[in-house]
Amino acid sequence: MRLLLIRHGQTPSNVKHLLDTAEPGPALTPLGQEQAAALPQALAAERIDALYASTLVRTQLTAAPLAAAKQLDVLVRDGIREISAGDLEMRGDDEAGETYITTALAWSAGNTELRMPGGENGVEALGRFDAVVEEAAKSGAETVAMVSHGAAIRMWVAARAENVSAEYAAAHILRNTGVVVLDGSPDRGWRVLLWEGRPLGPEDVVPGTSGPAGEAVGTGDADR
């Protein structure tokens, strides 16, 4: 299966660098609306068989133009919502942002029992995202697009793709409406083909799973 993981368009909380992860969440800014409107053209070459979005408003608004262009219903699933910020919710300081993304990428590196302060742990976060991907794979669709969230996408991809480590995900921010393209299945595993349009080669693979490198963690992109 070809899997397209798309981050939602810009929101007011992104502009303010806030960890805004609760439902229903904010709508899109005017720029975010333009980004969503540009997705059909950007993905015109993709034959998308199924389109998913999370339960947060911003992903559904981002998915709407693509759904119209591809004549698809948007399948709303809680499992691909953003990682809950817990006690860090609506904070915009650097310490909170670093704690949030470092915890999420520690799950990717294997420390899945670690819990977000006041929130979920890696077993829970990966499990719910896995369930939606498995549902899509069992549907028989050849190409599936999922509009999700920056931290959730980076965390899941680094945990499940054989050629992307936590270190790589820590060092590569996923911008609003950025797309990660993967090939594989829940049984065979996953491999990233494109990260925001850039093919991944052997030189991009960071060996080891020691966890995210602190100096590479950006605090402005964790779906804030």
Rank of each mutant, 00 (worst) to 15 (best):
84 S>K: 14
51 L>E: 00
7 R>T: 06
15 V>K: 08
81 R>P: 03
34 E>T: 12
35 Q>W: 08
38 A>R: 10
9 G>C: 00
93 D>W: 15
61 L>W: 08
28 L>M: 08
85 A>R: 10
54 S>V: 12
70 K>P: 08
24 P>R: 12
34 E>G: 03
19 L>Y: 04
27 A>C: 06
55 T>D: 12
61 L>T: 05
32 G>Y: 10
66 L>H: 03
44 A>T: 13
10 Q>D: 02
66 L>A: 03
82 E>Q: 13
27 A>H: 05
81 R>M: 07
92 G>T: 13
62 T>F: 00
39 L>R: 02
38 A>Q: 02
12 P>M: 11
36 A>Q: 00
13 S>E: 04
98 E>D: 01
13 S>P: 01
60 Q>T: 11
93 D>E: 10
46 E>Q: 14
84 S>V: 15
30 P>G: 06
35 Q>N: 00
23 E>D: 09
52 Y>S: 05
20 D>V: 08
11 T>V: 09
94 D>F: 11
43 L>W: 10
41 Q>H: 12
72 L>M: 03
55 T>R: 04
71 Q>V: 11
26 P>Q: 10
91 R>Y: 09
31 L>R: 15
9 G>A: 01
42 A>T: 11
74 V>Y: 05
95 E>H: 13
43 L>S: 04
59 T>P: 02
9 G>Y: 10
26 P>N: 06
96 A>Q: 04
39 L>K: 02
64 A>G: 01
37 A>Q: 09
46 E>S: 11
51 L>H: 05
17 H>K: 11
78 D>P: 09
64 A>H: 06
37 A>N: 05
16 K>L: 09
43 L>T: 10
71 Q>Y: 11
80 I>P: 05
57 V>R: 07
77 R>I: 08
48 I>F: 10
21 T>D: 01
47 R>H: 11
10 Q>I: 08
53 A>N: 04
53 A>L: 04
100 Y>V: 14
41 Q>A: 11
57 V>S: 03
79 G>Q: 02
74 V>M: 01
23 E>H: 14
70 K>E: 00
20 D>A: 15
29 T>C: 01
25 G>A: 10
66 L>M: 01
66 L>I: 07
46 E>M: 07
57 V>G: 02
